[in-house]
Design a protein around this nucleic acid. Structure first.
Lengths: 224, 224
DNA sequence: ATTTTTTTTTAGATTCGCCTAAAATTTATC
DNA sequence: GATAAATTTTAGGCGAATCTAAAAAAAAAT
């Protein structure tokens, strides 16, 4: 089934608001979508008829199972496109949201699955939010310091707790950026250094001082 | 200025029909856009008011300068996305048109210029059609047999005059596909072989027999 | 040069997503 | 528990883009 851009935006907004409060109000939706409550009511009636939401007048709204599934598809697209924009086209984290708002409505499922593949099936977007997989499953992310990463487990870099020029310089030197896949292959207690692989490349050595500022995420049950 | 998807589609359709006949009829447009002549008339009035077209009732339509410029921007986007889909995501030539019809309406100019850069500023799309540059200039393409390419001139592979499995196998081996940038670095008359570079990589040798089936395009005044 | 045919435009209606203003309902307050 | 305040819905309208049916204009045929 294909839905209008407007309907997709409603579904996405309801999904996000449900995280705060399981029952979403007309007013909250109007605020989120920068529209008027009367317009929201109109749309809720349509979404209800299409069984994307459970809606009863004056009683707020919830996503149905199919509404939830749709929301996750849209969020998947949004976050994969954001990853693409930052990782492949060199956009800054701040400027990608607006563009991804447009790209998330491109309909082809095959496109998004191939993009996912092309990007290396990333688990999180550049802001550190998890990317649902093709089946709509949201990976459970453990965002922790790189120092806490068990040896042999792959993880994606989510955030850096030091944005100084020196730090960025160092990261560039190691070819590490947000989204880069890291794996610890060895730990050396003598000089507080770590041996890691970057994007599956050859092992390199970094200091624990650097690693202490790198926050990574990995799938709960990932064993590779 | 930002225009609706529908308006952009009209402008693009008028541009393409102008290539056949400098004055475009209402009926021709209706056919092209799979809509009704009455709908076309309505839209032409609006486009005329926005000065994207010259339109007088019963007298057909032409693009204005700004209409032409807009058409070229849309076509640029369409062809760059097609290139991306084939080259980076591995889509077949046939399946990309429909997806690019959606992607061409994404508005960000910065996005498309970065994409252009990321793709290596290709001169033609996977079908061999020229890609207008950021200024709207359409490169003049000389599509000729690779054997006719002067030594030292870079050219993009446009089409292959033999689609057999053996040929595709050979191309895959040499990592050559549609859009790949080729340059002849040497010719050996003794065994009818050519030394070429593929995407700026190290020189490799191919047979004239293979080269005879490869059709390439290069910018008229390109000297690199 | 009429008449016929084709093309194009006008007129009036429909759907979608939004609006404002007013009415209905729920929630909060005294 | 009655009343005031906030929320939500209904009613009626608007612009964009489309449609059908009918009228007007241009082109083709006799």
């Amino acid at each position: 089934m294909k839905y209008s851009t407007s309907k997709e935006n409603y579904i996405k907004a309801i999904y996000h608001l449900e995280q705060e409060d399981p029952v979403v109000s007309t007013n909250a939706l109007a605020r989120q979508l920068a529209t008027k409550p009367a317009s929201v009511t109109d749309m809720l009636k349509k979404l209800n008829e299409q069984e994307l939401i459970h809606y009863e007048p004056y009683k707020g709204v919830k996503l149905t199972d199919s509404g939830n599934k749709l929301a996750l598809q849209i969020i998947r697209k949004h976050r994969l496109w954001e990853f693409f924009l930052v990782e492949k086209l060199g956009f800054g984290w701040e400027e990608v949201h607006e563009i991804a708002e447009e790209l998330e409505h491109i309909s082809s499922k095959k496109l998004i699955d191939r993009l996912d593949e092309f990007l290396g099936k990333p688990k999180t977007d550049p802001h550190g939010d998890p990317i649902p997989d093709a089946a709509g499953i949201v990976p459970k992310i453990e965002k922790r310091c790189l120092l806490d990463l068990p040896i042999g487990v792959s993880a994606d870099l989510i955030s850096v707790s030091n944005q100084s020029a020196d730090m960025l310089d160092l990261l560039r030197h190691h070819q590490i950026e947000i989204g880069t896949r890291l794996k610890i292959t060895n730990r050396f207690r003598f000089d507080h250094s770590l041996q890691i692989t970057v994007q599956g490349g050859p092992p390199v050595t970094i200091s624990e001082q650097l690693a202490a500022h790198l926050y990574v995420a990995w799938a709960k049950d990932e064993t590779d």
